[in-house]
Design a protein around this nucleic acid. Structure first.
Length: 443
RNA sequence: GCCGGGGUGGCUCAGUGGUACAGCGCCAGACUUGAGAUCUGGUUCCCUUGGUGGAUCGGGAGUUCGAAUCUCUCCCCCGGCGCCA
């Protein structure tokens, strides 16, 4: 959530931020109105309680000295009835106050392009030599501001065909038992996945990240604090009869790990590499990417997460972006970095870079990773601070994908399949133990 | 799941209905050449922040003039039993 004191002092900042996000900024006026009513009530409640407390003390003294307390008790009763009324009123006011404040998004960083639609994300930079079909060249060049290098190819392969031909997947039977967007991973594809996970864990360990696997379920309250309404509604599975949700990313349990803690300044930054299963409802994605394992209800992901001092977060955003780029470079997957425009940004992020890989068969760049700086927005909801003599300071949090294993496998299959053979990126061979996946010579 | 013991400031803990003890740690100041020791103040949150203001003793509800304390309920931790990869 946002800083309420800052909102009171400087609502203009929030009007502008919401306007740029194409959101209804009149809720700010509504908030200020209801907040002032809440504060008025709170003052009154405090005054009445103060009176009650002092009379209670007098009763205590009289009880000890054996004096009569009946009229003092009556006085307290009348204070209590007034108090009751105002407190009840304040409960509903506070409910609305909290509801509204949770809808106010983070303050937009000033380099975020103000626009709607993914097609208006701003190209930042690109890398790699893409395999591009003739009919996709225009799209490729447009997507890279004319700077993209490529080789023209005649033929591309869908990852679904490749997986089926090479006996790497069983989609039909998964659908039979679990429904759409589930899959059995088989044979060398499973080994490739494990290799990607091991590679990612090593990559982050070597760069000062402690690596963890979080609990795959967290309580609803924690989900609420770690993310926003949109994510909760569209992505999160709830466990029936339990107050638990399946995580949609390790970001949430990792962020919440330090909930309600006061850190020492010298403990920061804390860099965490998280490996976890991710469960997503994909509500609202009907009809999109229905084939294969590009968009599924269950996948695994290696995530980067940083808790840091406020003054360091923009530097760390660059570091996270660089890390993900290095991983893609090491796999030789062509990619571009885009600065996600204001209309497509989630409420938590002040700024977000998407890193999109080139998918030759789809003929376009698709999201592989997403790096966000949430500033103090997420940490404030989770109440994570560091100790400071003049008042403890809310820290900053950042998150970014390192390796989305399923989607990365799609990228590898689309980019490196030739004559029915999948070629494994060189850096992964020590992890897979094989350099190709082909029909013959399977394990 | 059952039985028992617990949950109190950053930590260890006292507190069986009447203003939340104490110790340790940490921060600041004083003293000191410096460090240590010592002393003083501070070390959760809220409010038109300085006021002999309010809240807070795992969460929520209740009884009471008044609840850390009594009642109900939920959560979590420890031990034992049961089950078990």
């Amino acid at each position: 959530m946002i800083d309420i004191r800052l909102l009171r002092e400087n609502p203009q900042v929030f009007y502008e931020s919401m306007k740029k996000r194409f959101q209804d900024y009149t809720i700010i006026d509504r908030f200020l109105e209801i907040d002032s009513r809440w504060r008025e009530n709170t003052r009154e409640i405090n005054t009445l309680r103060s009176q009650r407390n002092s009379i209670s003390l007098q009763i205590s003294a009289r009880v000890k000295s054996g004096e009569d307390t009946a009229n003092l008790k009556d006085e307290v009763r009348s204070i209590n009835s007034k108090l009751d009324e105002i407190e009840k009123d304040n409960v509903s006011i506070e409910e609305e106050r909290v509801k509204i404040v949770n809808r106010i998004p983070n303050i937009l960083e000033n380099t975020v392009p103000v626009n709607k639609g993914d097609e208006n994300n701003a190209f930042v930079r690109g890398n790699g030599i893409a395999r591009v079909r003739k009919e996709d060249i225009e799209e490729y060049l447009k997507s890279t501001n004319g700077t993209g290098k490529y080789v023209e190819v005649k033929e591309t392969f869908s990852h679904v065909d490749t997986m089926e031909k090479l006996n790497l997947i069983d989609l039909e039977r998964a659908t039979k038992i679990s429904g759409a967007r589930f899959y059995f991973t088989k044979n060398r594809l499973l080994k490739l996945e494990l290799a990607l996970i091991n590679y990612g864990v090593d990559f982050l360990s070597e760069r000062g990240f402690s690596v963890i696997e979080p609990p795959p379920m967290i309580s609803s309250e924690v989900v609420w604090k770690a993310t926003d309404q949109a994510t909760f509604d569209d992505a999160i599975y709830k466990i029936e009869g339990e107050n638990l949700c399946l995580i949609s990313t390790s970001e949430h349990p990792i962020a919440a790990m330090l909930m309600n803690e006061i850190l020492e300044k010298n403990e920061l930054p804390i860099k965490v590499g998280g490996f976890s299963p991710c469960y997503r409802k994909e509500a609202g994605a009907h009809g999109k990417d229905t084939k294969g394992i590009f968009r599924v209800h269950y996948f695994k992901k290696i995530e980067q997460f940083i808790f840091c001092k406020p003054e360091d977060s923009w530097d760390f955003m660059d570091e996270l972006t660089e890390n993900t780029e290095k991983i893609l470079q090491s796999f030789e997957i062509p990619y571009r970095v885009v600065n996600v425009c204001s209309g497509e940004l989630g409420n938590l992020a002040a700024k977000k870079y998407d890193i999109e890989g080139w998918f030759p068969n789809q003929g376009k760049f698709r999201e592989l990773a997403s790096i966000s700086n949430d500033l103090d927005y997420q940490a404030r909801s989770l109440n994570i601070r560091y100790r400071n003599p003049d008042g403890n300071i809310t820290i900053h949090t950042l998150n970014g994908t390192a390796i989305p294993t399923e989607r990365m496998m799609v990228a590898i299959m689309e980019n490196f399949t030739e004559n029915g053979v999948i070629h494994i990126p060189k850096v992964l061979i020590p992890y897979t133990g094989f350099d190709t996946i082909q029909v013959q010579g399977e394990d």
